[in-house]
Design a protein around this nucleic acid. Structure first.
Length: 894
RNA sequence: GGACGGUUGGCUCAGUCGGUGAGAGCGCCUCGCUUACACCGAGGAGGUCGUAGGUUCGAAUCCUACACCGUCCACCA
């Protein structure tokens, strides 16, 4: 056997195994009628080149599930891909262009797109490589991109179908317009910044000269586009004005006084100027009251013709001019300081202008109904559960979705406009032609002058199709039939609305079935300072850096031990270091076991052994082992990755290495040698399989080195081996209790040794006073373990032992342990040690006694609780008496 | 403004159905390079469980209010 290195070096093994797995086709998601399917369509990362540890978390979770299910015998498909992420990529590429003194408008649409494709290709290679480094068992043969030919087809198909069913329409709406970037931008691209601004009070006179109403505004220049003043219907101050007409100052326009629930009685004067074309609320008010919408600020941020004498002024210049005029004509009542939250374009930092524009929308209310139903019914479950509410709250108040974007990188809207509209039929359709394929002539009037809509679709329109478009939809592929609905969607809480909700809607609409049965919302990874990781802020931790330092398995495990129910996790190097140390522990345990196997030609079949034929440590570790298998499988069913990894850690390190292995060392030289070797190997081999989903590389590396004679080690890779199943016949509570007694005794003696500063070379003697025959037998049967682990020469046990005067002592259950030390005994220290323990017990006994003398407690507490308390009191009291007696012996000495 | 989450030893976090001597990892202290592992082993110190009330025989755990931190959503001009 090849000598194993003293320390585990991940770099030696990781690349090799990934290559082996991939080339062997183990990741291939095969349709198999003999197996049950398990499928995850991996959330496609944006091709923006960003990479931080949060991605590593999300995808590792999925790989753990996939490897686990694959080993459990499911036909497993993890389908990877990338998202074209139109806005985000625009930002990246346009930034690059800006550095070269270029812009997308200077380049033109075609050249710009060429440039983006080039970027996309580089970027997706980088991401793919990272995923491979991380060991993800994704089926790369089925990799998809949201702008692949087939995928585009699916997107256009969706648009046409939705349009034909009347869900998609064209209309006007106020959207965030950036005059700097010359595009509409979504809410998430707007940075909010608090500014010290002013609130201006302007008086609008009544047409009949009977008075005036004062309105408050932060943007006086928009008054030029006012078409009403609104008050709350219940505002008594204005009851008498409702329905009357005002004369808009400077414009001399007659505008009505209307009522609307949206108005806040307590803000300003309680009367709001309504500017439908430049404010989202006002736009909605206008909709409810059929008010005209006058655009007074143009896309360039300058005043339009509609602004009359202010036309062509910059919007901020216009504000000054308007204020001057108002003041001159005595309409300006007062000015207050006012902190305003201003929307700024996150790219160019220009103040966003809400602007009325023509957009495509999707009606959502009706589509949301079945999507709400499947979640309420429990057909789709959110994990953690609290996110169900986030989803439902949004769905139940869903608004129409603006699906058009004035960008270039993405799916161009499959709509053409006839420029001629030569007949009434064409005019009736407004010359709108919706088609997957570019039409040559107008189907209505035969005109050849057709112009395609310039806009593209919102990125999420295409990602909404991910779970089925990746499997081949609209074609009826074998994969689609077999793997849809997929098993689980793992993603971040930030995109429940943007993405998850829409996948559920489109899945139900086009597949008539849910897209997945579970939605696991992974935590946001914060860095060590509790800050969100972001490349632009420089607060991200690059997973590759961590991998470089600790290896892939440690990085993955470090993430998994923290992947619990919390909404956020802080990630630091500590956890990765802990996990790295664990890999080393596993490596060395394996090294020890394999080294001690070297003279074995074949292995006895320990697997056939009956529990009764085994020794206590064997029965104990096998019981622990099977319980851990049970637990890991169970908590994984609940997606408790933290529990699964931590429990395994505790078992392997503490039970197996600290105790079983240490005890095994004593037995490997004796008659039980082969039995012990077999059990060591059995537990090691099973542990590797149990751990494999979390740490794929080290487990494969060691597993491949195990003797092939082991029945379980016949396959060509651990990732194809069976995942361990627990066998309850090995559950052995008695052995666990007995072992616990031994451990406690050993620990008590070690504590004495340590407190008395006894060097390891100092052998000691043990005397145990015990009257319980079963315990005496237990200790005698495991005598060599106790002696060896405590470095003791011998042990005398019976019920007549008296405490040697110069000895340290301890009480464990039925046993009183004495360590005669003669002049090695530090009497003062020992007295202090015992006194402290007595004091501790006294406190406990007092608190229990207080309970047990409390009538209320005795009357109302359940019987079991009272009994347990009584039992504890007896136990502690007895222990205290013994300790006090031993302490008394020492007191006599001085 | 609303919703959700968090607040437990120096740090990062567990803690199930209310009854535990409140746990772990890191860090710290003492001892030890005992031929798997110093990326280790043995032992130890360290916590009025954010604050204030309440429910209860009994609260880290349930309820209310508040504070601070975080995330998401939002139509206060």
């Amino acid at each position: 056997m090849k000598e194993l290195a003293k320390a585990y070096n991940p770099k030696d093994v990781e690349k090799k195994w990934y290559k082996f797995w991939e080339e062997s086709g183990y990741f291939y998601g095969e349709v198999s009628s003999k197996k049950k399917p398990f499928c995850i369509t991996i959330p496609p990362p944006n091709v923006t080149g960003e990479s931080h540890i949060g991605h590593a978390l999300c995808y590792t979770l999925q790989d753990v599930l996939a490897r686990w299910k694959r080993m459990q015998g499911y036909a497993t498909l993890c389908l990877p891909g990338m998202d074209h992420a139109s806005i985000a990529v625009h930002r990246v590429v346009e930034e690059q262009l800006a550095k070269e003194g270029l812009s997308r408008h200077l380049l033109g649409r075609e050249k710009f797109l060429e440039r983006v494709w080039q970027w996309k290709n580089e970027c997706s290679e980088t991401i793919k490589n990272q995923f491979k480094i991380l060991g993800f068992s994704f089926d790369w043969s089925k990799e998809r991109f949201t702008m692949d030919e087939d995928y585009v087809d699916a997107v256009l198909e969706t648009f046409v179908r939705f349009y034909n069913k009347g869900y998609i329409y064209r209309g006007q709406r106020v959207t965030n317009w950036c005059p700097g970037c010359q595009t509409a931008i979504s809410d998430i691209e707007v940075d909010r910044e608090e500014r010290k601004e002013f609130l201006y009070y302007v008086s609008y006179p009544l047409e009949d000269g009977s008075g005036s109403i004062t309105v408050a505004t932060t943007r006086p220049e928009t008054m030029l586009g006012d078409t009403a003043v609104a008050v709350h219907p219940k505002d008594e101050r204005y009851q008498k004005f409702v329905g009357k007409i005002l004369v808009l100052p400077l414009m001399e326009r007659r505008i009505p006084i209307i009522t609307d629930e949206i108005v806040d009685i307590h803000f300003g004067t309680g009367a709001v100027k309504v500017t439908p074309a430049h404010d989202i609320n006002d736009f909605e008010i206008a909709g409810r009251h059929s008010l005209p919408k006058i655009v007074v600020i143009g896309k360039d941020g300058k005043m339009t013709k509609e602004a009359g004498v202010f036309a062509n002024l910059d919007r901020y210049q216009a504000r000054e001019e308007v204020l001057r005029e108002l003041k001159a004509k005595n309409y300006l009542v007062k000015i207050e300081d006012y902190p305003l939250v201003l929307g700024l374009c996150e790219r160019c930092h220009t103040a966003v202008e809400p602007l009325l524009s023509e957009q495509w929308f999707m009606r959502m209310k009706e589509l949301a109904v079945p999507a709400i139903h499947v979640v309420k019914e429990g057909k789709i479950k959110f994990v953690p559960e609290q996110f169900t509410k986030v989803y439902l709250d949004w769905m139940e108040n869903i608004r129409d979705w603006c699906i058009s974007r004035q960008l270039w990188w993405g799916h161009r809207i499959p709509v053409w406009y006839c420029q001629k509209m030569k007949n009434p039929k064409c005019k009736m359709q407004n010359g709108v032609i919706v088609s997957k394929i570019a039409p040559q002539i107008c189907p209505y009037c035969g005109s050849k002058e057709l112009v395609q809509d310039e806009d593209i679709l919102d990125t999420w329109f295409s990602s909404a199709l991910w779970p089925f478009a990746t499997l081949g939809w609209p074609k009826e592929t074998e994969e689609l039939r077999y793997f849809y609905p997929t098993s689980i969607m793992v993603t971040g809480s930030g995109i429940i609305h943007l993405w998850v909700a829409r996948m559920i809607i489109t899945g139900l609409e086009f597949m008539q079935d849910i897209p997945f049965s579970s939605v696991y919302i992974n935590a946001t990874v914060l860095n060590e300072d509790g800050k969100r990781m972001s490349k632009s802020l420089g607060t991200g931790i690059d997973p590759l850096e961590m991998i470089e330092q600790y290896g892939v398995d440690a990085t993955r495990f470090g993430l998994m031990v923290q992947a619990g129910k919390a909404q956020e996790i802080r990630f630091g190097y500590q956890k990765a270091e802990m996990a790295r140390n664990f890999t080393n522990k596993i490596h060395n345990a394996a090294r020890f076991i394999l080294t001690n196997l070297s003279d074995l030609h074949f292995l006895p079949s320990a697997f056939c052994l009956l529990p009764s034929a085994l020794e206590l440590p064997d029965r104990w570790i096998l019981s622990r082992y099977h319980k851990i298998i049970e637990e890991v499988n169970q908590v994984l069913e609940e997606f408790s990755f933290d529990e699964a990894s931590q429990r395994f850690y505790d078992f392997f390190w503490h039970d197996f290495c600290d105790w079983y292995l240490e005890i095994a060392k004593l037995r490997l030289g004796g008659e039980e040698k082969e039995q012990v070797q077999s059990i060591l190997l059995l537990i090691l081999e099973g542990s590797l399989r149990l751990l494999h989903p979390f740490m794929p590389f080290i487990t494969e590396e060691i597993w491949q080195k195990l003797p092939r004679t082991l029945p379980k080690v016949r396959g060509e890779s651990i990732m194809l081996a069976n995942y361990p199943k627990s066998d309850k016949k090995w559950f052995d509570t008695l052995s666990e209790n007995q072992m616990e007694t031994i451990q406690k005794i050993v620990m008590a003696i070690r504590n004495i040794r340590s407190e008395m500063n006894l060097p390891p070379s100092q052998m000691i003697e043990l005397q145990v006073k015990c009257s319980e025959p079963l315990v005496i037998t237990l200790l005698l049967e495991n005598l060599s373990i106790i002696l060896n682990l405590t470095r003791s020469k011998n042990l005398i046990i019976n019920d007549k032992i008296e405490k040697p005067k110069l000895s340290a002592s301890s009480v464990i259950g039925q046993c009183e342990i004495f360590v005669p030390l003669a002049d090695l005994l530090d009497v003062e220290k020992e007295k202090a040690r015992l006194a402290k323990e007595v004091l501790n017990l006294s406190k406990l006994i007092d608190s229990i006694s207080r309970k047990l003398t409390d009538q209320a407690f005795l009357n109302k507490a359940p019987k079991e609780v009272i009994e347990r308390e009584e039992m504890k009191r007896r136990e502690y009291t007895e222990k205290r008496e013994r300790l006090e007696r031993n302490l008394a012996v020492l007191m006599v000495l001085c």
